[in-house]
Design a protein around this nucleic acid. Structure first.
Lengths: 219, 219
DNA sequence: AAAATATTTGACCATTTGGTCAGGTTATAA
DNA sequence: TTATAACCTGACCAAATGGTCAAATATTTT
């Protein structure tokens, strides 16, 4: 009887090998993102990640081999979302729409995936040892395109000349990511209460308006 | 003869106990700030700090007892400079001057003390476990004062209504600190070359102008 | 000069950590 | 059904780490 029940139970809850790997990798990546966000690459331990994922530590090593490799996989998965937001910038020809939607997309990303932003921030604060290659190739290329767009808008007198377009991009990045990276500070200064969805939408609009006015556009 | 020379050498290079402690604490704090900036509280090791300070590890523990205590001392010493910059904001009655000088002071701080800014950022990203008290009391109070000033300027029609004054403050903090916290990224996107002093002064002026325009002021 | 106090540091230790591995279980292909 | 390949995990280990301590040295006080 024991055998039958075990067999039945096993069969009913069985998953294909493919699904198992897929799901466990996902669970581990999500757990790792949180732990790396809080403690950084060196400060995070595989045990913490395992506990967060509710899996034995050996399992983490089984799927990702080393902590450094897992960390790199987390960074890569964040890059996908980042680039998706980045694409919105070049979707529009008019600066008002480009800034409006790009800033909005970055704000949404900070709200939806704050841990990813923190891992990214931690990595760059630490000197970007694992990301220098990506930054100097892929990100650099994207930034150059944006700088060209902005300079063209300046030439066409569509926006005010801000000097170096990088300064404007950095302001957008820094301000939007602030709501993810510094969310604990934002919470404390909001009387200890996390921003509600409605409040966050307000801030998003305010940030968009600040950015638009900073380049001489009337929101 | 050996004794004489040793005695002479010892006497000539002798320092008072007071000076010894003062100087060693300073050396250790500077070293710790760099290491904590790069690796965070958990990731930094007392050995790394000792090597950076060119002192034996035991010496670090002699002066600061535990790593956590040393970390707290580093945070405190950063707070002093932070508050100094903060004071400039309330020195001026006119918003144009207040923003101009405060943003300038924050940019200067990012340039002069980038490691301190990174330690601060790391601490907040990690959930501010050691700083929550300071943030909810001292910083909160200062922010409330600033918010009042900004709201008064809005009522007097001196600047545009930005909705929540916090949003504006966060934009200033985030943008200015970006040049410290993300300096590696800034460097990479500046073709791998660190900003020169002259370049940095340019950016500082551009940031000031962006902020002024964002609240409807003509730079 | 001698006693008292403060600084210095190598040797040492208990704990934590990333990673390994053998032996087991489960799913799939033959 | 059987063989093979993939998944799972407790037990284990070498290295790293925060911290201690005793003994040596240097300064100050008496």
């Amino acid at each position: 009887m024991g055998n039958v029940m075990v067999a039945a139970k096993t069969r009913s809850s069985s998953r294909s090998k493919e699904k198992i790997r897929e799901e466990n990798e996902r669970i581990i990546l999500i757990a790792a993102e949180k732990v790396f966000a809080k403690h950084g690459l060196k400060g995070a331990t595989t045990k913490q990640i395992a506990d967060m994922a509710k899996l034995p530590k050996s399992n983490i090593h089984y799927y990702f081999h080393t902590k450094l490799n897992l960390y790199r996989c987390v960074l890569e998965s964040i890059l996908v979302d980042w680039m998706k937001a980045a694409d919105t910038f070049n979707t529009f020809n008019e600066p008002r729409e480009a800034f409006r939607y790009y800033v909005g997309a970055k704000m949404d990303l900070s709200r939806i995936r704050p841990f990813g932003s923190k891992v990214w921030a931690n990595e760059i604060i630490s000197g970007a040892p694992e990301m220098e290659a990506i930054l100097s190739s892929r990100l650099k290329k994207w930034v150059d395109t944006c700088v060209d767009s902005i300079n063209t808008w300046v030439e066409l007198k569509k926006i005010i000349n801000v000097g170096d377009a990088h300064t404007l991009l950095y302001m957008i990045w820094a301000t939007t990511q602030h709501y993810a990276d510094f969310e604990y500070q934002v919470k404390i200064l909001n009387n200890g209460k996390r921003l509600t969805d409605a409040e966050f939408e307000e801030k998003k609009q305010q940030v968009i308006d600040l950015v638009l006015r900073s380049v001489g556009l009337n929101p």
